[in-house]
Amino acid sequence: MIKKMFSFILIIFLFLILFELLNNLTENKKLSGVAKEYAERGAAELGTANLVTSIVVTYRGLDTLGEVSVLFIAATGVAVLLRRRKDEEILIQKVKRQSSEILQTGTDLLVPIIIMFGVYIFINGHLSPGGGFQGGAVIASAVLLSFLSDINYKINHTVFGLIESLSGVFYVLIGVLGIFLAGGFLDNRILPLGEYGTILSAGAIPLIYTLIGLKVGTELASIIDNMKRDSE
């Protein structure tokens, strides 16, 4: 009874707060403070055609590094919590069911295209929507599709771990290089800006996004691998 009263009061408070917010809501016609600076200076200063990228990778690059670390910790946590010892693995040997012909053929056709699309997304991160995270997630979905179609599909943990840790290290190294060669941590102007709107432009952003894409892709793939290995 008290619990119900309490949640009722909470809902009323929430309603009042949201009502007040909605009542005073007016459309922002102009960009405010920092956003205005980013929007006006971003393209000329960093040479990125996609303004979102210049904010995500350079101006707020530290936040992106934080996101990558959070994902890394999540992947490590899954790996630690769901690991299974060797003797346990032998105990649980169930009869696996082969996946259907349609899924197998479709996977064979689609996996290379999906991986190529993921690479396209992160290499063109500074020109078109998308970037390292999105491209990495798309690549991980290709690995997921392979898991679904082939019951004996295994990823090479050594290679995946190596790609993941190396790209993480190089990402931070490029960031530190920015302190010495350009304006600050994760500044992209350590490489020449190049011609605006071409693939090899915007300084180090294509490089950084490639590293992020590889890291996120391998991390998500190993999360899926850990979840799947245990569910058999």
Binding site: N50, P129, F133, Q134, A137, V138, L144, M227, S231
Partner: peptide
């Protein structure tokens, strides 16, 4: 940009990870 992340991670990967977890 946000739409791509939401579609790939929210609608794609996390759904499948939930299914694996349920199976487990």
């Amino acid at each position: 940009d946000v739409a791509m992340t939401e579609a790939a991670i929210g609608a794609g990967l996390s759904t499948l990870i939930f299914l694996y977890a349920l199976h487990k």
